[in-house]
Design a protein around this nucleic acid. Structure first.
Lengths: 204, 204
DNA sequence: TGTACATCAGTGAACGCGCGTTCACTGATGTAC
DNA sequence: TGTACATCAGTGAACGCGCGTTCACTGATGTAC
């Protein structure tokens, strides 16, 4: 009985579902550590939780099911972070700016989930919708609000949202993938983005 | 002697190096098929060429060495495509535009190497320089040429090159990773990019 | 109040797989004498 | 012109590994009578 098998106590009767949460939590941790879903194995997750690999199959169909649950949880966390940031805004431009900054923070927070969400094909949810698509819809709404508030509109909100997202994704994705290059600060680049897309506050 | 072992003839004496090229070629093919270097195994490469796994070790130190050789070859192909495109240009703006379009074409050409080059940490070459860095230097030069030709210069060439590259990368990377989203045509977005960065031809 | 039984939360051993790598080898071909 | 030998371009079998998944099981705990 060495100390690397931490002698986990099984959950009491009726609380078996709590292991499910623990497994998702551990999967999220491992995703953060590797950046690549392919490196996260059922056995590694079980090890992390201190449970036999077999136990995973009491809560998930198979490995894919486990990973989908973890990725969905990450997307929820991501969306929540952006919504919370936007909630403190004073106007539409401020809201978009806060959303963008929260996006940058999520991407660069070290917890390494960004690539899991955006550099891997997204799974489909129960309704066949791309997991995370609602994040994009919220971005379109936030851009539309800026247009309604008087931003000069050369393009429509959907198009502008695509321009915004692609650019910001490029900024953080290249930075994460090639950290050795001499990047300017992401926040500075983000200001350039809002300015060149005419989505910065008019007076600022 | 079934037909799925194609009865390869060994190379005659003195031409053993040709197998090396074949191995690199096969590695490139497999990279194209999976997008992910982690999925390309020594054994799969050997199978593709019709040779035993052991034979690989006569030409490469180990798996990593084989993959590095393949990735370097891809970068060379990429750089060559951009240089050739730029060679036909009539002025600095045209050259930058052609470079950009060649970038898009390479990324979307189906041969799936784009993510291998830009969505994986680049290896270092013999001199310790990031493989592919010269591509970026050429981009900076191309942008500088536009500034010299009279583009309105709010930022310097390096900064503008970063803005350009991040945006274009975002456009193609998201499209490749999430092909189900309703993207506008990449070429159209690229025109928006050059325009909003003030790097389009002035009269056009 | 006691006991048989169902249920729950897991475990342990085993399967077949593909992997990277190493070891000792084989058999054709050119070269030295 | 003949032959021993070195070299070259590989092969075949084996190693130990971690993987996803399945099977039959165990042992504690609540419940029905």
């Amino acid at each position: 009985m060495t100390s690397d098998t931490p002698q986990r106590q099984r959950y009491p009767r009726g609380q078996g579902e709590r292991l499910r949460e623990e497994l998702v939590e551990a999967t999220i941790e491992l995703l953060a550590e590797t950046d690549d879903p392919a490196d996260v194995s059922v056995r590694a997750v079980a090890r992390r939780v201190g449970v036999s690999p077999t136990a995973v199959y009491r809560h998930f169909e198979d490995r894919e099911d486990l990973l989908r649950a973890a990725i969905e949880a990450c997307f929820n966390e991501f969306e929540l972070a952006l919504d919370e940031a936007a909630a403190a805004a004073t106007d539409a431009f401020d809201a978009l700016w806060r959303r963008g900054r929260a996006y940058l923070e999520y991407a660069m927070a070290g917890h390494g989930h960004y690539r899991v969400l955006f550099s891997n094909p997204a799974p489909l949810d129960d309704k066949g919708v791309l997991v995370g698509y609602s994040s994009f819809e919220k971005l379109v709404e936030a851009v539309q609000a800026c247009l309604d508030a008087g931003a000069p509109a050369e393009d429509d909100a959907f198009r502008l949202a695509v321009e915004l997202w692609t650019w910001i994704h490029g900024i953080v994705d290249l930075r994460i993938t090639h950290p050795l290059l001499p990047w300017p600060p992401a926040e500075e680049l983000f200001d350039t983005v809002t300015r060149k897309l005419s989505l910065a506050a008019p007076d600022a």
